[in-house]
């Protein structure tokens, strides 16, 4: 497997999915870079820090609010916390573990979100990789037109696909309001973008590598498993992460296909309901919102180095 990667990267003179990485730089370029670093304008850095602060403050305010008491949240701004610091984790305990129907019950919804998002990230990636491979490397009539059609399907408003799809789920398959219904719906809605992005990446794999395998007698299935998948791992990871985030953050699909009950519905739906109660549950909102952020943030921070590689492939050509 790694052998194939090495071969391909040797051909490209750089890691796959990345153009002109530092490693490709000559010593001279590195020298230049050093001198340039010193010249970086302090104004630019200051501007960057200002932007970073502005972008972070809203979320930070939410975090501070989530550890304040209900009365404080209601009557004073979160910044007063710096003058009168106080800590309480009651809000979190309340939304996560309080029993009884009137509790936010987020624990269960949290599990639902995971059970929805993991398969709904894996399924479309797997199917899209297969299709992207076919569009890129299997020659057939109408491949171009079909690919354009797939790309164009991004424009179909989700809202309009809800009724017909639900019709099929309930009347043909009998799975409405179950996890598989949500998985399939997300898979379908995620496919156009996944195929588009993966196609960009997979078509960039040097033809020689694939030709060599064909000459050795490998058929498409073998090429797919022995060359395409190992070489595409960075792209699969990055697009998979994005798909996971989209699914995790989705409200509309879940609303329709999960049936809206605590058995299947995800965190976002419960959060939206708590928003509906804005006023009554104001003290719960920051904690609830923050809990819904935790998983995407963990996923994002731990895997961010994969992000760009896959998404960027094919787009850097000027």
């Amino acid at each position: 497997m790694t052998e194939a990667v090495e071969k391909a990267e040797a051909k490209l003179d750089r890691p796959l999915g990345q153009r002109n990485d530092y490693t490709a730089e000559g010593a001279v370029a590195r020298q230049f870079r050093k001198s340039k670093e010193k010249l970086t304008s302090p104004w630019a850095t200051a501007a960057a820090i200002v932007i970073a602060v502005i972008w972070t403050i809203p979320t930070f305010g939410l975090l501070v609010s989530s550890i304040r008491t209900p009365t404080e949240i209601r009557t004073t701004g979160w910044w007063t916390w710096f003058v009168n610091p106080s800590f309480t984790f009651d809000n979190y305990a309340d939304v996560l573990f309080a029993s009884g129907a009137s509790s936010a019950n987020l624990g269960q919804y949290f599990v639902n979100s995971l059970v929805i998002a993991i398969p709904a990230a894996i399924f479309p990636i797997a199917i899209a990789t297969m299709a992207a491979y076919a569009f890129a490397w299997i020659k057939f009539k109408g491949a171009g037109a079909m690919f354009v059609l797939v790309f164009a399907l991004q424009i179909v408003p989700l809202q309009m696909a809800l009724v017909p799809l639900l019709q099929i789920f309930s009347q043909v398959l009998g799975i409405s309001g179950t996890f598989p219904a949500v998985w399939i719906a997300h898979t379908i809605f995620g496919l156009p973008l996944c195929i588009f992005l993966l196609h960009n990446f997979i078509s960039e794999i040097p033809g020689e590598v694939i030709e060599a395998a064909r000459v050795d007698g490998a058929n498409h299935t073998q090429i797919f498993f022995r060359i395409i998948i190992p070489l595409s791992l960075p792209a699969l990871a990055s697009i998979g992460i994005f798909q996971f985030l989209w699914v995790w953050n989705d409200l509309l699909v879940a609303l329709v296909f999960s049936g809206g009950t605590v058995d299947v519905a995800p965190l976002t739906q419960r959060l939206a309901e708590l928003v509906g109660n804005f006023g009554r549950n104001q003290e719960r909102l920051p904690a609830a919102a923050f809990i819904s952020l935790v998983v995407p943030l963990i996923v994002f921070f731990s895997l961010q180095r994969y992000f760009v590689r896959g998404l960027l492939a094919g787009s850097t050509k000027g």
Partner: peptide, 24 residues
């Protein structure tokens, strides 16, 4: 093999997006 690679995606898209688009 082409069929095996392309049809899962195309069948899902036909059901979930192409048909709804026409219906809309």
């Amino acid at each position: 093999q082409l069929l095996a690679f392309v049809s899962p995606a195309m069948i899902l898209l036909a059901i979930g997006l192409i048909y709804p688009a026409i219906r809309t």
